[in-house]
Simulated scan of single mutants.
Amino acid sequence: MAKSKETHIFYVLECKDGSYYGGYTTNIDRRIKEHNEGKGAKYTRARKPVELVHSRGYSSKREAMQAEYAFKQLSRIKKEQFLAEMREGEECAPTEEFSE
């Protein structure tokens, strides 16, 4: 997974139970460590370890948080489609092609 040079990052974690968690950060390495230490979001505390499966940098906090919100609104199937497209190298935000 390539690290982004952008300041504001939308990221997706896959949890131990196979569920996905979308979040926002300005420091991806620190944030993943926090999630795995049980200091991250309440959702991931009981589902660790977590693994980074997607991240994308944005130039503004607003854009990154909009991507996070859009991802969280997707159904499980749409989240899987979005992540599959990202693995294949397609460049799109969760709001562009996968909104329901």
Rank of each mutant, 00 (worst) to 15 (best):
F10P: 06
R62K: 15
P94M: 04
A64E: 05
K5N: 13
K48G: 12
C92D: 13
A70Q: 10
S19C: 00
G40D: 06
Y11F: 01
E14N: 07
S4T: 15
R30Y: 07
F71S: 00
I32Q: 00
E91Y: 12
Y58M: 04
Y43P: 07
P49I: 03
E51T: 15
E68F: 05
D17K: 10
A41W: 08
A46S: 15
S55G: 03
A46Y: 09
L52R: 03
P49Q: 00
Y69V: 09
K78G: 05
A41D: 12
G22S: 12
Y24A: 06
E100Y: 13
E97T: 12
D29L: 10
N27L: 10
I32L: 15
R87E: 13
G23H: 07
E96H: 11
S60E: 03
N36S: 08
F71V: 01
C15E: 01
E97M: 14
R47M: 09
S55H: 10
F10I: 01
Y43G: 10
K42N: 12
S55C: 11
R45P: 04
L13G: 04
K3V: 14
I77V: 13
P49R: 05
T25C: 06
F10C: 08
R56E: 08
K72Q: 12
G38A: 00
Y69T: 14
G38N: 02
K33G: 08
K3E: 12
E68K: 11
H35A: 07
I77N: 12
E90F: 11
S60V: 08
A93P: 02
K61Q: 15
E88Q: 14
A67V: 04
M65Q: 15
K16G: 06
E97A: 13
F98W: 15
R76K: 13
E51C: 10
L52S: 10
S99P: 02
V12S: 02
Y11R: 00
G38L: 07
R45C: 11
F82H: 08
S75T: 13
G23I: 03
G23Q: 04
G57Y: 08
A84N: 12
R76P: 02
R56H: 12
M86G: 08
K48V: 00
H35C: 09
E6F: 09
E96D: 15
K33H: 10
R87F: 03
C15S: 11
K5Y: 05
E37N: 13
E34Y: 03
D29S: 14
E100N: 14
R76A: 11
Y24S: 04
S59Q: 14
K42I: 11
T26H: 09
P94K: 09
K79I: 04
T26V: 11
